[in-house]
Design a protein around this nucleic acid. Structure first.
Length: 447
RNA sequence: UCCUCGAUAGCUCAAUUGGCGGAGCGAGCGGCUGUUAACCGCUAGGUUGUAGGUUCAAGUCCUACUCGAGGAGCCA
């Protein structure tokens, strides 16, 4: 009696009879021959029916199967270089086919390019397509690799609250909701402040969950709901933080290469660009980056490009600036020591240079830009209080946060990593909305 | 919030200076023993986003609106 196997393991069953349970992704009839591309969640494999090998009614059933019908197939595995699929190169000679459900014939997702609007309205079906399946498998691998590295390196996963009181960082627009008789609550835009409390109990921690930004950002790099990893580390300075980011990112990329080679190949990702992606990553000061950008701006002759590259010391980088900086290297680039004015209030000032802070962004190559942002946190309670007052933040809301610095304060650092941005970069795709199963953007909350 | 672009068959797109709304894919039927988004033949499929306006005549020009996109700002 043949056993039920996943498509992903098919290479171990050459010459054997097996059972597949899945869905008809595509069908091609050719007279007395029919090809079914079957997907079962673990992969895509071609199944072949010869009229002569089957009961006439079974063959007739196969040649009339609607796309997306659910089926159970019995047959023999053989190697064939012509066979499409993921991983591909194998096919199943159908001996028997049982229809679990014949799908309605008006399945809307054709196997070709669709417009963004249509594809997103049909996201619940779009995720069945090979490209989206491959991207989301890479995303899962990124998330698994992330936890793997952190757990192996002494970090504890600490869930931080999603429902939070007002004013975490002050600047960002938050989603607001009613909270019983306590007034308004807000969906978390970061778990960092809570993780700063957690490190004094657990040393090295991380939170890994959804994050919400109500800002009306409409670009290929923004979602209103996205997943963020936020490690926080006690007794760690800015250099130590960059070491952690470097090792973690290296592990994530190498794992994706190992676990998802078929997916990346299907996505036509230039693997060689990822293979060299191991630490150390170059580290550049904001001052040097600013000098480079100002120089570039002055040399630019095209007036349109010149306007985009406009830059002076003290500005935060725009997307065109990030792109220019990432062109300098094949690897991700650390830029550290940003002006305090463009960064959050809790970042530790540079010694003897209070206008600069111990912050660091990690910019992914090939124009992907910022994938991690972090800093050494202010550890002195008096300086922190002064900064909170200067920013006009409500002091009483930060009472607990200030207390962390009263009882055994230490230098500590942390960063946030955007899962969808990392996934989009590894997959080589245009837009972060394809790097999450059901993207939430400013204009979309369906499906 | 600002700037720019777009909306024509189920989907992706054509339609010349304002002059009879088409094709491919998908769907149905038939043909084909190696297809890779197969191919060949036939069939069905339309209130051109909405509301006005200009004109002998509007998919095409004008006004307003709706919906969407990607860029700025802000950020991961």
């Amino acid at each position: 009696m043949p056993s039920h196997i996943p498509v992903s393991k098919i290479s171990s069953y050459i010459g054997q009879d097996i059972i597949l349970k899945g869905w008809v992704y595509n069908r091609t009839d050719k007279g007395k021959l029919a090809f079914l591309l079957i997907r079962d969640g673990s992969g895509f494999v071609q199944c072949v029916a010869f009229k002569g090998d089957l009961q006439p009614e079974t063959f007739d059933l196969i040649t009339h199967l609607p796309q997306e019908s659910s089926v159970i197939i019995t047959g023999a595995v053989r190697e064939d270089k012509r066979a499409p699929g993921i991983p591909g190169g194998f096919e199943v000679g159908i001996r028997d086919l049982q229809v679990v459900q014949a799908a309605d014939m008006d399945y809307p997702m054709a196997l070709k390019d669709h417009g963004v609007d249509f594809a997103l309205d049909n996201r619940h079906l779009w995720i069945r397509m090979q490209s989206q399946w491959a991207i989301l498998r890479v995303r899962a691998a990124v998330m698994t690799a992330t936890r793997e590295w952190l757990n192996a390196n002494g970090f504890f996963e600490m869930s931080t609250p999603i429902l939070t009181p007002a004013a975490a960082e002050g600047t960002t627009t938050l989603f607001e909701t009613e909270y019983f008789d306590e007034g308004s609550a807000y969906l978390a835009q970061t778990g960092q402040l809570y993780n700063e409390a957690n490190i004094f109990a657990f040393g090295k921690v991380y939170c890994f969950g959804p994050t919400f930004r109500a800002e009306k950002s409409k670009t290929r790099r923004h979602l209103t709901e996205f997943w963020m990893l936020e490690p926080e580390i006690a007794f760690c300075d800015l250099d130590g933080l960059m070491d952690v980011e470097e090792s973690l990112l290296t592990h994530i990329v190498q794992t994706a290469l190992k676990e998802c080679s078929a997916e990346l190949k299907f996505l036509n990702r230039d693997i060689s660009k990822l293979e060299s992606m191991a630490g150390p990553f170059p580290r550049m000061s904001y001052d040097d980056a600013a000098k480079y950008l100002i120089d570039l701006y002055e040399k630019e002759t095209d007036p349109e490009k010149k306007e985009l590259l406009k830059f002076e010391w003290g500005m935060d980088f725009g997307a065109p600036h990030e792109t220019e900086l990432t062109k300098l290297n094949e690897k991700p680039l650390f830029v550290y020591g940003y002006p305090s004015a463009v960064k959050a209030f809790y970042m530790e000032p540079w010694p003897d240079r209070p206008e600069v802070c111990k912050s660091v962004d990690l910019l992914a190559p090939e124009g992907y830009g910022e994938i991690c942002g972090g800093s050494e946190r202010m550890s002195d309670p008096d300086k922190l209080l002064a900064r909170i007052q200067k920013e006009g933040l409500p002091e009483e809301a930060f009472k607990w946060y200030l207390e962390l610095r009263k009882y055994g304060s230490v230098p500590h650092s942390g960063f946030g990593m955007g899962v969808e941005r990392v996934t989009a970069w590894i997959c080589g795709i245009e837009h972060v909305r394809e790097a999450i199963p059901f993207p939430r953007t400013i204009k979309r909350i369906y499906p």
